[in-house]
Simulated scan of single mutants.
Amino acid sequence: MTTRNAFIERLIVWMQDNMDKPFSIQDLAQRAGYSKWYLQKLFYQATHITLGDYLRDKKLEMAAKKLKYSKESMITIAITSGYTSQPAFIRAFKKKYKVTPSRYRRDSLCNFEPM
Rank of each mutant, 00 (worst) to 15 (best):
K66H: 12
L11Q: 09
K68R: 14
S102N: 09
F112G: 08
F43R: 01
E113I: 13
K66L: 14
K96F: 01
I90N: 08
A6M: 14
I25G: 02
S108A: 11
F43V: 01
F93R: 07
R103T: 13
A6Q: 15
T47P: 03
D27N: 15
T47D: 04
L109P: 10
M74P: 11
E9S: 10
I12E: 07
G82D: 02
R31I: 09
L51V: 03
F43G: 00
I75G: 01
I49V: 07
M62T: 02
S85V: 04
N18H: 15
F43A: 00
Y69K: 07
A32F: 03
E113C: 13
I90W: 02
Q86K: 06
A64E: 05
R91F: 08
L67Q: 08
K59N: 11
Y97H: 06
I79L: 07
K65Q: 15
T2G: 14
K65Y: 15
Q16W: 12
T50Q: 00
I75N: 06
E72V: 12
Q16L: 14
D107Y: 14
Q86W: 08
Y44R: 04
M115N: 12
T80S: 11
T80H: 13
I90Q: 08
D53P: 00
I75V: 08
Q86I: 10
K66G: 09
H48R: 04
T76K: 05
D107I: 13
R106D: 04
R91W: 03
R56V: 02
Y69S: 06
V99Q: 11
M15S: 04
S73A: 05
T84L: 08
M19D: 04
N111Y: 09
Q40P: 06
R105V: 03
F93M: 06
F43I: 00
A78H: 11
K94S: 15
P101S: 06
K58N: 15
I12A: 05
R10V: 02
M115L: 12
I25L: 02
L42K: 03
E9V: 09
S35L: 09
K96G: 01
M15W: 04
T50H: 02
Y38P: 05
A46Y: 01
S81V: 08
F112R: 13
A64S: 10
E72L: 15
D57W: 00
K68N: 14
M19H: 09
K41P: 01
F43T: 00
K68E: 15
